[in-house]
Amino acid sequence: MPPPPDPAILRGMPLFAGLDAGALAEAVALARPRRHPRGTAVFAQGEPAAAGHALIDGRVKIVQTGPDGQQVVMRFIGPGEMFGTLAIFTDGLYPADAVAVADCVELSWPAAAMTELMDRHPAIARNALSIVGGRLRELQNRLREVATERVERRIAHALLRLVRQAGRRVEAGVEIDFPLSRQDVAEMTGTTLHTVSRTLSAWEGQGIVESGRQQVVIRKPHALVAIAEDLPPVPDRG
């Protein structure tokens, strides 16, 4: 069990934006810190949603399984982001699995504590609404992509979303800074592992991306944007 957290760890977290030091201390006092080693579940789809969660460190994959066993990666959660919180306010069941894909530290607030915090500090509820709104917009975009775009554009968009969330400048280009498999990309884009492999291999051949078993580096960022946005082809100036 990690030591009781310092309220400062809530600073910079969108869920607690605009709160004064007193309110942050109150929020942190009600939080339960937990560690989750890489590969373990934070919560499971269908379980009663006992708490709201926020990630302090690491990376969590939110993945939903359909009745036929098909999995869809809903999103990756990075440090500072809330997750698994909506179920408290909907049907009380977690809608997806949350799996630690790196060693994680999270805070969770029992449902009653989260509700009480929101009642006492409406800014938390407003912040949650804004986070949920942003994610809804992202899902609307993904739905449109799945319905209308050819698969290459969908894969390019998925990589760009991950860059926006977890991009890191490296010598070779822009790296997606957490373990990401081709299967993950397939499950994010509603396509098959085979198609993702074929697409990424083609892009590797063109020098656009470089992907190891769990790592993706975008070597030609603009070329990927051009695929995602259907921009005119990049002039090749050698």
């Binding site: 979303r161 822009v174 960022p221 603009h222 070329a223 002039p235 100036r237």
Partner: peptide, 24 residues
């Protein structure tokens, strides 16, 4: 200039020089 930088996920990582180069 036809640059798609506003709102682009890559904008925090690419310099003006690199963008000019990428767009020719």
């Amino acid at each position: 200039h036809g640059l798609a930088c506003p709102g682009c996920a890559m904008a925090p990582f690419m310099t003006v020089r690199e963008a000019a180069d990428a767009y020719g």
